[in-house]
């Protein structure tokens, strides 16, 4: 098989791959940041004391988590134009990935917040810290530290899910594999290269996570 493996064709298509790699990278990065923001907001709404907001958050989270991403993608891609809203493919892709990942992020953050023992929160209350001070200084730092591994997992899922965007003709890594396959009929070379680039993104994310775990958020895990 290795004899049949055509390295030259990969080199020939490398400009396409690097362009698509960058596309996957920025689509995922923007969606990830969006998902963190939406996830934090949805989580805050869900655990907050205002009932209507909590219900909206629950409906959002449950409907996203119980339906396939592909169905959500098609719904937005075909549904929005029929409502008269026009968006580029990239914007559609980012919107869907953000909303989808945001729902999972909300649950991850909620899990982290609820893992903080109530005694620590009571200690904060007893010393006169207000709600936002307790969130900022007592609850969120250890909660984020505890949820970083789960967030890394969700970030990797998001990157892999971005492969579906090839179906709405966005030029990204999986699309590059498809192009190589259809133009030269070399699926093994095409998709192995695609997979190798995804692996590269995984290692970037992993090292970013362990770096931030060590320095940024949590100096020591107990």
């Amino acid at each position: 098989m290795l004899q049949a493996f055509n390295f030259r064709i990969i080199l020939e298509y490398m400009p396409l791959y690097s362009q698509c790699f960058m596309a996957t990278l920025w689509l995922s990065a923007v969606s990830l940041i969006g998902a963190l923001l939406i996830g934090t907001a949805a989580c805050a709404m869900r655990i907050g004391h205002y009932r209507p907001l909590a219900r909206i958050a629950v409906i959002y989270i449950e409907s996203i988590r119980s339906t396939p991403l592909l169905a959500q993608l098609y719904l937005v891609y075909f549904g929005l134009p029929s409502l008269g809203i026009r968006m580029s493919e990239e914007m559609t892709g980012i919107l869907v990935l953000t909303l989808n990942s945001g729902a999972y992020m909300a649950e991850i953050i909620r899990g982290g917040i609820q893992s903080i023992p109530s005694g620590h929160i009571e200690a904060g209350i007893a010393s006169g810290l207000n709600y936002f001070q307790r969130m900022r200084y007592i609850i969120l730092p250890p909660a984020l530290g505890a949820t970083l591994p789960a967030m890394l997992g969700q970030a990797i899922v998001l990157v892999k899910d971005s492969a579906l965007l090839s179906l709405i003709s966005i030029m990204e890594l999986t699309r590059a594999g498809q192009i190589l396959t259809s133009e030269r009929f070399m699926p093994v070379e095409g998709f192995l290269t695609t997979a190798a680039f995804y692996l590269l993104i995984y290692y970037i994310l992993k090292s970013l996570t362990s770096w931030s775990q060590k320095r940024l958020i949590f100096r020591e895990i107990h």
């Binding site: 023992p117 005694g119 620590h120 009571e122 200690a123 904060g124 200084y137 007592i138 730092p141 250890p142 530290g145 949590f218 100096r219 020591e220 107990h222």
Partner: peptide
């Protein structure tokens, strides 16, 4: 508190 409840971080 009985359980100290120091902030672990």
């Amino acid at each position: 508190f009985q359980q100290f409840n120091l902030y672990p971080h």
